[in-house]
């Protein structure tokens, strides 16, 4: 791939975020290639050098993109990670598919006592936001949740923190229907 092509891929990724392309596409320089479970398509993500992540913006005292309901969104992402990242020794990507019910059940255990309706409303909103920013891949029809390509951009030095987090989180309660 020529450097002009690579630059084009970078520009595309800059405007659109992670790119979902057929697996036959060769990987442009400096980009991370993540093959999906089916193997037909893969994601291309820019990989900045030296494991730099947008977290560096905070170090530079620049404004980061605000998240709506940051805590709720983070909790739902953590819960999804708990459900999907089954093999803690492996990398985060691609993880196992899970269900919306399981994810919300973990959130429910984190903050017990919230009504079903509140949990559902906040949870769905958070899932939608995480889906839009490609942290999760949420299939509303099938009620299925997978990890999105962005989880692969967590640098290696963050993985111990995340493993610890997953250990702390409760597992989804099997076969338990949400309280009506």
């Amino acid at each position: 791939m020529s450097s002009a092509d690579a630059a084009l891929w970078w520009a595309r990724a800059r405007t659109e975020g992670p790119l979902r392309v057929p697996s036959a596409t060769s990987t442009p320089a400096g980009m991370l290639r993540l093959v999906e479970r089916g193997g037909e398509r893969c994601w291309l993500l820019p990989r900045p050098p030296d494991d730099v992540t947008p977290a560096v913006l905070r170090e530079l005292r620049m404004q980061v993109l605000p998240v709506e309901h940051p805590n709720e969104t983070s909790r739902v992402l953590a819960a999804a990670l708990r459900c999907c990242w089954t093999d803690a020794q492996a990398g985060v990507w691609p993880g196992q598919p899970t269900t919306v019910r399981d994810v919300l059940d973990v959130v429910d255990q984190l903050i017990p006592g919230r009504g079903e309706e509140v949990l559902h409303r906040l949870g769905t909103g958070a899932l939608r936001r995480l889906h839009a920013s490609r942290w999760l891949d949420v299939d509303d029809e099938a009620q299925r949740v997978c990890l999105g390509p962005r989880v692969a951009t967590w640098p290696d030095q963050d993985l111990p923190t995340l493993r610890e987090l997953c250990r702390e989180l409760p597992s989804p309660r099997p076969g338990r229907e949400p309280d009506r």
């Binding site: 990724a13 800059r14 405007t15 659109e16 975020g17 992670p18 992540t53 947008p54 977290a55 913006l57 980061v64 993109l65 605000p66 998240v67 940051p70 969104t73 983070s74 909790r75 992402l77 953590a78 990670l81 936001r129 839009a132 920013s133 490609r134 942290w135 962005r150 967590w154 963050d158 993985l159 923190t161 995340l162 987090l165």
Partner: peptide, 11 residues
């Protein structure tokens, strides 16, 4: 490609 970043520490 403005998407919020969820730092491990934030989680």
């Amino acid at each position: 490609a403005p998407a919020p970043w969820h730092d491990a520490a934030d989680l």
